[in-house]
Design a protein around this nucleic acid. Structure first.
Length: 427
RNA sequence: GUGGCCGUAGCUCAGUCGGUUAGAGCGCCGGGUUGUGGUCCCGGAGGUCGGGGGUUCGAGUCCCCUCGGUCACCCCA
């Protein structure tokens, strides 16, 4: 087995139980919180016309070199791409269906980016996220950000920092970009060759360069929040005030820029200090007024965020938070009388709403008891020749006392329920 | 995409200056007197040493290529 014929493709992986259960619970927690805040789930296709994503900005790496593109069998073939993110899909859906704004949706699912894999960075990765489309109110920004913050809190994560910035409006941006460009040009001697190249293409990106050589030039660079228009500044003020009112802690990070070019005004990111790696961003988001219009829709502002499921779980591991859950198997049927009774009993128990499992293959009693123990079940129901002859089943407590007694076969489910509820006779 | 490190049983790893039938712990399976788990004891299965090529009398141990992982950059979730 050292060289199986097939393996999961590079940057992808199988998620097996119990980890898959944990992920499902994480998503389900998020779903509950979003549902209860008035968001409904959007399920959109995993692939879209490539044009949907090209609106994210031709200079972003995500669309320029990280997309999984494909052509279908049509004539002419349609140029499609696996979704590298979900905000664009949400906006496309908004334009297509014209729901009454504000449209509050959440989503969850896999996304794809052709990158060099690393811990916490996969070619297929999973995010949960939420969007409010058709709302310019800064209160929407506050609500969205707070939803994410409360979610992290609910998971028991303590080391997640919220970084916020304002990227201004498009008009502010061009003035700022000119100033930034000038600065970078006058300091080009101090910049790394890579940063110099980036400065030509997309000067904003130089701001989050992690190369030590670039640090000085970046530190002295002008910052966006000094170039905000009155309207953008007022919006930013309102967002901050809203977060303050809720006691949501944040850090203003004037050099925070986001990888997708569509962001305006509010931009934010969540950094997990528990993650001692470069991939410490567990989530991020911002405002994207203009994206809906770009996709052919009406003027509509939007704000949203996406959180990386894989990285959140890494952060949970690092903090010892959100551990594995208890087993869903409550009763384990041990049958040493041929196995037919186990088949019937399991069905009977499951129909009564109990989590029930059993062994296959006619294993020894000892082996079956081991399996019962490992299953996490609180009870074993034992059927041997004696019980079978008497039409009974032995109920054994696997936790604590280890006491056991017999009940009639037909009463097994009832007895199990009573035992689990702690109301069994003799307790 | 660039550079560094790593790749031995299901998992975590040990394998001395290249030298005889490749080891451990955990896990798994079986047993510990005649139907009872979680501790303990005994036994067992399981590896073409990621793959391919080369150097050598001889390679898990050296070289090259390749695949995968990982770290930094990049990017970002």
């Amino acid at each position: 087995m050292a060289q199986p014929r097939f393996r999961a493709p590079r940057g992808t992986r199988d998620i097996l139980p119990p980890e898959s259960t944990r992920r499902r619970e994480l998503v389900s927690r998020f779903a509950d919180m979003a549902d209860r805040a008035g968001y409904g789930q959007l399920e959109s296709p995993v692939f879209e016309d490539v044009g949907v994503f090209q609106r994210l900005g031709p200079d972003t790496d995500v669309v320029a070199k990280e997309m999984f593109e494909l052509h279908d069998r049509g004539d002419p073939p349609q140029h499609l791409a696996l979704r590298p993110e979900l905000t664009a899909s949400a906006c496309r859906a908004y334009v297509e269906h014209r729901p009454t704004p504000p449209w509050k949706i959440w989503y969850e699912g896999p996304q794809f980016r052709y990158e060099r894999p690393q811990a916490g960075r996969y070619r297929q990765f999973s995010q949960v996220g939420a969007e409010v489309i058709g709302a310019e109110d800064p209160a929407a920004d506050v609500e969205a950000i707070t939803l994410a913050v409360r979610f992290f809190e609910a998971l028991g994560l303590r080391g997640v920092r919220l970084l916020v910035n304002s990227l201004g409006d498009p008009a502010d941006r061009s003035a700022y970009l000119a100033a930034l460009g000038d600065h970078l040009r006058s300091h080009s001697g101090e910049l790394s060759p890579q940063a110099r190249a980036t400065a030509e293409r997309n000067p904003l990106r130089v701001l989050d360069s992690k190369r030590p050589e670039d640090r000085a030039a970046v530190a002295s660079a002008p910052v966006m929040i000094d170039h905000l228009s009155p309207a953008a500044a007022e919006h930013f003020e309102a967002v901050r005030a809203g977060l303050d009112d809720l006691g949501v802690a944040y850090e203003i990070c004037p050099r925070l820029v986001r990888g997708l070019d569509y962001y305006v005004r509010t931009a934010f990111e969540f950094a997990a200090s528990g993650l001692d790696v470069a991939q410490d961003a567990v989530g991020g988001g911002g405002r994207y007024d203009g994206l809906v219009e770009d996709l052919g829709g009406p003027p509509a502002g939007g704000i949203g965020f996406a959180l990386g499921v894989d990285r959140i779980l890494l952060a949970c591991d690092a903090e010892g938070a959100f551990g594995p859950s208890t087993s869903a198997v409550e009763v384990f049927v041990v049958d040493v009388a041929g196995g037919a009774a186990a088949t019937k009993l399991c069905d009977q128990l499951r129909r009564a709403g109990l989590g029930a499992d059993r062994a296959f293959g006619g294993r020894s009693m000892k082996a079956q008891m081991k399996l019962a123990d490992r299953s996490g079940a609180a009870l074993a129901l034992i059927v041997g020749p004696d019980e079978l002859a008497a039409g009974e089943v032995t109920v054994r407590d696997l936790h604590g006392s280890g006491r056991q007694y017999r009940v009639r076969l037909g009463d097994a489910a009832e007895a199990a329920w009573a035992e689990l509820a702690g109301t069994a006779p003799g307790r």
